[in-house]
């Protein structure tokens, strides 16, 4: 028992699988992507305040304050800018069906 626990402990500590972080993934050829700055500009025009954005799981992920002032995390299709997923502190506000 003691040995099992000790080795499981060691394994759990060493093995840090680099899993994909996001809840959403996109599969769009990179040649079709529009620039991320264009998405930021579009969202800003719609009333969001963008804090930062990055690529996650092949989608564009945006951290922002929405038009209602909520701190949100949102995913977009990098080619069409279609909104895929929006969450506030882990609470899902929008999810594309």
């Amino acid at each position: 028992m003691r040995k099992i626990i000790m080795s499981a402990l060691a394994a759990a500590t060493i093995a840090a699988p680099a899993m994909a972080t996001g809840k959403v993934t996109c599969d769009v050829p990179e040649s079709e992507w529009q620039p991320r700055e264009a998405l930021e500009a579009q969202l800003t025009a719609e009333g969001w305040t963008v804090r930062k954005s990055k690529v996650d799981g092949g989608c564009y992920e945006v951290y922002a304050k929405d038009e209602e002032g909520r701190k949100i995390e949102a995913y977009f299709d990098p080619a069409t800018f279609e909104k895929l997923y929006v969450a506030q502190r882990g609470k899902v506000l929008f999810e594309k069906k």
């Binding site: 402990l9 759990a12 500590t13 840090a16 699988p17 899993m19 994909a20 972080t21 996001g22 809840k23 996650d56 995390e73 502190r89 882990g90």
Partner: peptide, 14 residues
């Protein structure tokens, strides 16, 4: 709150 549960689980597993 975090994107993905891996970090939390790795910390709490031991």
């Amino acid at each position: 709150i975090h994107d993905g549960v891996t970090a939390a689980l790795i910390h709490f597993a031991p």
